[in-house]
Design a protein around this nucleic acid. Structure first.
Lengths: 183, 183
DNA sequence: GCACTTTTTGCAACTAGTTGCATAAAGTGC
DNA sequence: GCACTTTATGCAACTAGTTGCAAAAAGTGC
């Protein structure tokens, strides 16, 4: 149940409409909590009903017209409560690791190409993160909020670094292992 | 749609009943693709209906009685197809990173304790993986299947290593930053 | 042989996320 | 000023995963 809190965080940073939120989820926040616009609109509705946010007064609310939301005190309190509450880490779920495990029983045919493709994708993501770091966290910019956000970004950088290294290693000692023929 | 393939992989390694699968998901396979017994039973039903697996002949099938499944040729083919098919990596979703980001706007009160707890949990998991490596992959055991499975395990080890390092760093330069008082 | 627990299987309801599409307003080209 | 695209909001149906519970068989204690 984290999407509402992701939205509250984004709205605290800056009151926004659904579409603006969607765009920001495609960039910063979405890097570690992705969401589609449908999810966001649905959740905005629930948050408004629940009294955690409210629509900023607009001339006439109508379809196809921007409607911006801001966080109410109750929403802020809920976000603080959630942030402090203990939560267990979710067990990892990774398809590529599962596919490698499957390859150990049905053969590696066809897998190598996708490993290369993933390596490229992770390299791109890593480059993007590094660019953000260069742009948004120049030396000296280190207020408490910056320190926290930088820490989050560094997790992204280190994770992508891990994947690129692991994928390179996988490609290096990849056994050429066609599917065993008998059933 | 990976659960059926996780189950097929497990059944290829060894025909099993639902409960045996559940136990194995709690150990090896579940380390990177977790599932509850309810999910497993439901999926076994679908796989059987779909003709990908079949129940091994038992005396009389009845409730509360072990029913083991084995993979049929169609199931093996489907697993090979899925393994080779290109798939995009899923965008990451991590609650702790989100909480840190939230803490940048509502303050860090209460978070530190849970960071410590997570560090401990990740250290435990890392120790467990290392123990498995010591036990299951002694030097010399490196057939093609072993190489692949070892690669998967190493991803787990490196990921847990990353988390422990990152959490230690987070705790080190954690700003003491109570919630800003004004709304 | 009867109560009690454990093992094994499973259903039903709920929550979260995804996919596909619709509808209204506003801008754009000519 | 009319067709066409873009922006912005949203509903509905579907898929995957989680939670809570229960029922049948088999083992256990006395």
């Amino acid at each position: 149940m984290s999407l509402p809190h992701a939205i509250l965080t984004a709205l605290m940073e800056k009151p926004s409409s659904g579409l603006e939120l969607t765009r920001r989820f495609d960039r910063s926040i979405g890097y570690f909590w992705s969401a589609t616009h449908q999810q966001i609109y649905r959740e905005l509705g629930k948050l408004e009903t629940g009294g955690l946010i409210r629509a900023l007064p607009a001339e006439q609310p109508a379809r196809g017209q921007k409607k911006a939301y801001e966080v109410l005190p109750a929403g802020r309190a809920e976000l603080a409560r959630w942030t402090a509450a203990a939560q267990d880490p979710k067990p990892m779920r990774d398809v590529m690791l599962l596919r490698l495990r499957a390859a150990a029983v049905v053969g590696t045919a066809g897998l190598e190409a996708d490993l290369r493709r993933h390596l490229e994708l992770h390299e791109q993501q890593l480059a993007e993160y590094r660019e953000i770091e260069r742009r948004d966290f120049p030396p000296g910019k280190d207020g408490p909020e910056d320190r926290l956000r930088h820490l989050v970004l560094r997790a992204g950088i280190d994770l992508e670094t891990f994947w690129t290294q692991w994928l390179r290693r996988a490609l290096t000692d990849f056994p050429d292992m066609p599917a065993p023929e008998g059933l």
